[in-house]
């Protein structure tokens, strides 16, 4: 897919991953501009519906990032919940013909600006290979 630039929606938890992304910015670490960041209070707050809606509306990839396991989550176990949801959701996606690799979960601490940048870079490379979201933006047709 020549010239295809994936759009990534990133749900980052306020306490770790968002702070990590912020650090990447303030430290001027270069990373591709493909990600649109949505700050959430905890990775456990990311309702699977948010992810499905993002894909339905044409996101090529979705990143959910939170605090490291086992005990960094500020709400104790939000990260564990997110992990289980995403494992199940990936199965649902693959049953529905959507490549599960489009959905990615990462643990990024407030000091890991470099990790955040590396994750985004890596996602962009992989999504470029995978091509556009097969759902497109369109409605289902009758035929």
């Amino acid at each position: 897919m020549a010239g295809f630039e994936p759009t990534i929606v990133g749900f980052l938890c306020n306490w770790c991953a968002y702070a990590g992304a912020d650090l990447a910015g303030t430290s001027r670490i270069q990373y591709p501009p493909n990600i649109r960041i949505i700050r959430v209070m905890c990775s456990g707050r990311v309702d699977p519906i948010f992810i499905l809606e993002a894909l339905r509306n044409g996101a090529d990839g979705v990143l959910v990032a939170g605090c490291h396991l086992p005990s960094d989550c500020h709400y104790l176990s939000g990260n564990f919940k997110a992990q289980k949801r995403i494992i199940l959701l990936k199965k649902v996606l693959s049953q529905l013909g959507i490549e599960p690799e489009r959905l990615r979960l990462e643990w990024i601490s407030a000091s890991e600006g470099d990790k955040f940048a590396a994750v985004v870079k890596d996602m962009v490379v992989k999504l470029r290979k995978l091509g556009p979201n097969p759902l497109g933006n369109g409605e289902i047709s009758n035929e």
Binding site: I49, L52, E53, L55, R56, Q95, L96, G97, I98, P134, L135, I140
Partner: peptide, 8 residues
């Protein structure tokens, strides 16, 4: 549902 069907 949000996704509605399998992508073939």
């Amino acid at each position: 549902s949000i996704i509605k069907r399998k992508v073939m």
